[in-house]
């Protein structure tokens, strides 16, 4: 008789981040992401255009009503480009985190009937949001081409990828943490959009952040990795220099990693009994 893979089910399992298992299930990550994208725009008349329309309209409104207020700063690029790039990056973050939490709840039925690493649900939600970002990013490139062709020369792919990773890691961290909480307390379903809105005001989405107190500014930078994400994004697209020192950036990355590890840890702890609680 040939040797067979043994699997042991027992009451107490040693804690692991479950990365090895995720690799075994990578095809399921792909298929969950694919389904999320498919379902999102089914039976909508203009389908995927919604992705572009939302930041576009917001940009228009902000440009009309708020540009006077914030244009006193020097942005190095036309204000509407600054706003649009900020909004699409912000949408990547907020929709990733929101769908991650909502999908845990809407997948309750699947969770109760089939085993798979539950991490796949928030992970695929974040990945699905990435497609929206790429599409709205293409529109940004079109704007830049029309407005100021030479600006394209400062585009840096490596920074762009790094920025997307920072934003996705932070949204995943937040999504995982709130997913774990929402399994027990449904309150967090409503708390998350509010929390995200708060973060919006302390992130350089439609204005750059200049606080009179340098210590506070630095603390804010460490607390909110979106500042790092946004700054790298604008460095990648427009070549706007990052005002932080290498040391500060490394600390921010460290904080981000702690957030993510905490998110995964909390989620994995909840995962054990998720089918009984949800």
């Amino acid at each position: 008789m040939q040797e067979k893979k043994e699997y042991i089910i027992s009451a107490r399992n040693k804690f692991s981040f479950g990365i090895k298992e995720l690799i075994d299930y990578q095809e399921l990550i792909y298929i969950f992401t694919w389904r999320e994208i498919k379902v999102k725009y089914k039976q909508t008349a203009i389908g995927i255009f919604w992705v572009v329309l939302q930041p576009l309209l917001l940009m228009g409104i902000i440009n009309v009503f708020l540009s006077r207020l914030f244009q006193s700063h020097h942005y190095e690029v036309p204000y509407y480009l600054y706003v649009y790039s900020g909004l699409i990056t912000w949408t990547l973050f907020s929709s990733s985190a929101n769908t991650a939490v909502n999908n845990i709840l809407t997948s309750a039925n699947i969770i109760k009937k089939i085993y798979f690493p539950r991490l796949i649900i928030p992970l695929s939600s974040v990945l699905a949001s990435l497609l929206d970002f790429v599409i709205s990013f293409v529109v940004l490139i079109v704007f830049i081409t029309i407005d100021d062709f030479y600006l394209l020369s400062s585009f840096n792919v490596l920074y762009w990828i790094l920025s997307v990773m920072v934003v996705m890691m932070f949204s995943l961290a937040l999504g995982l943490y709130f997913s774990a909480l929402v399994v027990k307390y449904r309150d967090f379903r409503y708390a998350l959009p509010f929390f995200i809105q708060l973060l919006f005001f302390i992130s350089p989405v439609i204005y750059s952040i200049h606080l009179p107190n340098a210590t506070l500014q630095e603390f804010l930078f460490y607390f909110n990795p979106m500042i790092l994400g946004m700054d790298i994004m604008r460095k990648a697209i427009f070549g706007i220099n990052i005002q932080w020192s290498t040391m500060q950036i490394l600390i921010s990355f460290f904080v981000l990693s702690v957030y993510l590890l905490m998110g995964i840890y909390t989620f994995r702890k909840t995962e054990e009994y998720i089918a009984d609680k949800i």
Binding site: K5, E6, Y7, I8, I9, S10, A11, Y115, A275
Partner: peptide
């Protein structure tokens, strides 16, 4: 418990093979 959806409170199960569980048709 056999299909790993929920853990047991005590005890142990050894499975020597791939398990497919069908607690419902058309899940998802």
């Amino acid at each position: 418990i056999l299909s790993r959806i929920t853990p047991p409170s005590s005890g142990k199960i050894v499975l020597r093979g791939r398990v497919a569980s069908l607690l419902e048709v058309g899940t998802g």
